[in-house]
Each structure stands twice: as structure tokens, then as C-alpha cells.
Amino acid sequence: MVTTMTDVNILQESHDFSEIILSSDVFINYIEIKKQVQQNSEAQSMLRHFSGLKEQYEEVQRFGKYHPDFRKITSEVREYKRKVDTHPLIAEYKASEKELESMLNEVSAIIAHSVSTEIKVPTGNPFFDQSSGCAGGCGSGGSCGCG
């Protein structure tokens, strides 16, 4: 493989750009909150319990409404998920995760469209998917609205 100065420059700029993202307030906030969640015994206990419930739920889903515990497990999972989602630290973590995802989606779209406006960037976010001319239909099984 032949490496040119252009390749080296692109790699260096990619590295520099990743350093900018890693030093951003959004990323630093995400990492700090993630550590807090990992160190919080109450949050970890809730997440472990929810993980166990999810395993039961997946087992029940194999048989659907014909499983004898379908309603009980489904209801229990929904109620406990609400409890987990409203835990202050977990809610803050999810918000920071969403903010980081949004930033990375925006960066991906900017990079892709700087190469070509024809590049479709599936972000899972209707705001970005609409602005890129694709409403999530191409790879999501829906009807394609791309131009």
C-alpha cells in the first residue's frame, strides 16, 4: 500500500478533529455523568434489576399473549422502566447521552455533505433525516422519500 502526503494529512486532521470532540463540553459532561451512574449503588441496583426484568420480558415475548405471565411481566417491565427513567441521575445521563448523539449526528451530516449532498446520513433523528432529503425510508424498511 502506498501512502501519500494527502493520506497522512487526512489522518492527522481526523485525529485533530476527534480530539476536538473528546475535549468538548458535551462529551466531558457525558463521561462525568456516566461515571456518576456507574458509582451510584442505587442506580446500579435499579439497572441490574431492570436487566433481569428485560430477560423475563424477552422470554415472554417469544410466546406473546399466550404466555401465562404475559400481562404480569409486560406491566412490571413498563412500570419499572418508568421508575428507572425518572431516577434523577439516570435521567440526567440519558439527557447527556441524547445531547452527545445529537452532536455526533450533526457532525456526521456535515462531513458527509461536505463530500457530496447525495450522501444519505441515517441518523434516526427525523430533523436531520428530513434536512438531508431522506425521511429514514431507505434503510429502515419504510418507503423511501429520498430525492
Rank of each mutant, 00 (worst) to 15 (best):
I28Y: 03
E19A: 11
N40E: 08
S96I: 00
S108Q: 10
S51W: 08
K98Y: 10
F27V: 02
S23V: 11
K120Q: 11
C134V: 04
I31G: 06
K98L: 10
I73M: 03
H113M: 04
H49I: 06
P68N: 09
I111K: 01
G142Y: 12
A112F: 04
E42F: 05
G145W: 05
N40K: 05
S75I: 02
E92S: 13
K65P: 01
E59S: 13
L53V: 07
E42A: 14
I31H: 09
G124D: 06
I28A: 05
R62L: 15
L89S: 02
S132V: 06
Q38V: 01
Y66F: 07
Y66N: 13
G136A: 02
L22W: 10
E59F: 11
T74Y: 03
C144K: 11
C146T: 06
E92W: 01
N40D: 15
Q44Y: 05
S24R: 09
S45D: 13
S24L: 09
F17Y: 15
A95H: 09
K98G: 05
T117M: 08
H15K: 15
S51Q: 15
I21N: 08
N29Q: 14
M5S: 12
G142N: 13
E79V: 12
G124A: 04
R48Q: 11
K72F: 12
T123L: 04
T86R: 13
V37I: 08
T3W: 07
K54W: 08
G139N: 07
G141Y: 08
G142C: 08
E101G: 15
K81E: 14
M103L: 15
A112P: 03
A91V: 01
F27C: 03
N125L: 07
Q130F: 11
F27I: 00
L89G: 02
G147N: 12
S41A: 15
E76T: 07
L22G: 05
R48V: 12
D85M: 13
Q44L: 08
F63Q: 12
H15W: 14
T3S: 09
D25N: 13
K94W: 09
A91Y: 05
I20H: 04
S143F: 10
D129A: 09
L104I: 04
E76D: 14
A43E: 07
K72M: 12
Q38S: 15
N29A: 14
G141E: 07
G145Y: 04
A112R: 02
E79S: 10
M5R: 14
E97D: 13
E101T: 11
V2Q: 13
G139C: 10
L53W: 00
Q56H: 11
I111N: 03
D25G: 11
R48K: 14
K54D: 06
S143G: 08
G137K: 02
Y57E: 03
